[in-house]
Structures are given as structure tokens and as C-alpha cells.
Amino acid sequence: MADTSTPNGTAGSWALEARGLGKRYFRGWALRDCSFRIPAGRICGLVGPNGAGKSTLLGLATRQVQRTTGELRVFGTPVDDPAVLPRFAFLGQEKPLFKRFTVADTLRMGAELNPGWDAAAAERIVRSGNVPAHARIGTLSGGQRTRVAFALAFGKRPDLLLLDEPMSDLDPLARDEMSTLLMAEAVERGTTVVMSSHMLTELEDMCDYLLVVAEGRIRMAGDADALVPAHTLVTGVTRDGALPAGLDRHTVVESRVQGRQFQAMIRPKGPLSADWESVEPSLEEVLLAHLRSPDAPSLYTQGARVDAEGTQAA
């Protein structure tokens, strides 16, 4: 398996660390038995279908949701400790702001409530979007409002930025502008970013770390560069309409039989049969295969798993 660049040593080098984390609502478990680690300084994509538990996970990390089981640490500090508050910033789906506040009021709120407020950075972000300082938030366009929300988030000087589908309601132009802003600010400061998104292409461009969630459980966690090469897309001939026995030696994520042919997304464990044609899949194909088959064994790259060190036997 490809080597992963994971920090080792101090606990603070993990931006987010979960052990057996779970959240149960009245209707059932939203998130169950989640153990993973996200190294500091990475841009992590949080992927999963609707209702998979992405928002719950972000809610747990931002203290908006109380966990039922397990533990969660932000840079080594338990999430219940108020000391984690200045270290993260959160941008939710709705990007709530006080509608009657002016832009200047909103930035002053950031200054009043955050000890490490970076007024220059916040003002720069607002200014570069030509957002008038004395306009009320309620009168701004969606893109401008998102920009103010970003300014509030970056003005906090967070070490960890958590985003819940931040671009979902933006037009393509504003989306592009915001992604550029996000990447520039994050890279400049070395901020760890965890963002959930439905846009697989967006994730492929921006993220170098992935956390895949489905049905409340972690399906995959690790370096984007290591997760994809761990998979192979094989095509071959079926035996009596069934999958060939040789396939069982490998971990099958997803398989399809079409006539006399089969196609399977596998994680190879040893040499592949010479009869089969194999190609390396794209990130999108791997993600889709995992999202379609939530029962497939989960995959963690080195360091991403907490309890069992190193790569889980796949």
C-alpha cells in the first residue's frame, strides 16, 4: 500500500480524532462506532449520501450536538472542553448571520467574541468582494453573505475549519470564487479543513484526505492518494453466470454481472488472474462504488484508524 504522510508523535498533530464515536436520536443511530483520525494541515473531504451522518459528525465536532458514546478530540483536547472553542470555526449549510446587523456589526461581533480575532484578514476578505460595510446582511446576495460568513470564520484564525456543504446554494461563479478564497486562505495559514460536499469533482480538486460515511458508519478514511490505488476495477468472463471463484481471494467492494461479463471493484490481495482485464479506477468511481454498497468492508489508510494502528487488514 502506498505510504501515507501522517504526522507522528504528539497528540496535537491530529486535527480530529474519534474513538467509538456515536450519536443516537429518538429515531435511531445517526452515527455509530466511528473511529478515525484526520491529520493536521490537510484538506479533508467528508463524503456520503444524504442522511449518512455527515452533518451529525460536524455537529459533534462543533459542540452543537451532544454525543451518545465514544470520544472526540480536537487537536488532542476533548471536544467538551471550552478550550477547543477558539481553535475551530464552523460554516453551516444555512450560514446563519444576524439579518439586521450591518457587515461592520457582524465583523465587530467576531472581534468581540473571539480572543485571537484577525481584523485585517476579515476586512480583506470582505473588501475583496466589494461588500459595502454598512449594508445590512439581509440585503446582501447569497454570494456576498457567504463571503461575510467566510470572513467571520477566517477572522477567528482557526486551526480547524469545518464546513457543511458551504457552496451548495451558490451559483458557479460565486462557487469558484469561494473555493479559490478557501484554498488560498487555508494554504496560507496551514488551516486544517474538513468539508462535506456532494460534488465529487469539487472534492477531487480540493481535497487530499477523505472520510467516507454511509449509514452512520465510516466506510473509508485516509489519504486520497492512497485510497484510490488500493482499488482495481476488473472485468472478466463469468462462470455459469456467477462470479469466478478466484475473486473471493480479494475484497470485493461492488460487483455487477452483465450477460457473460462481470465487472467488479476490488481491493486486490495478491496477483490477479491473467484472464481479467484490470484498470485503475478514478476517485469518483471508487467513491460511488463504496456509497452504493454500504456493506463492503471499510478501508483505512495508515494512521487514519485509531484503535488498530496502521492499515486495517483489507
Binding site: F98, R100, F101, V103, A104, D105, L107, R108, M109, E112, L113, A119, E123, V126, R127, N130, V131, P132, A133, H134, A135
Partner: peptide, 29 residues
């Protein structure tokens, strides 16, 4: 014609602040 942050940085930092932090926010809201 609308003033932007570049033009009126002073407006963001009023010199006299009676209220600070959360009390300011709650009263402003």
C-alpha cells in the same frame, strides 16, 4: 458611492466602547 471597508475603517472601531463582548452583542441584537 457606498462606503466600503477601505474607506471607513474607523467606523469599525468606535473609540468609546461602553459595552464589550457578549453584553454588546445581546444589546445590539
Amino acid at each position: 458611492t457606498t462606503p466600503t471597508l477601505t474607506e471607513t475603517p474607523a467606523a469599525l472601531r468606535p473609540r468609546r466602547r461602553l459595552l464589550r463582548g457578549l453584553p454588546w452583542l445581546v444589546v445590539r441584537q
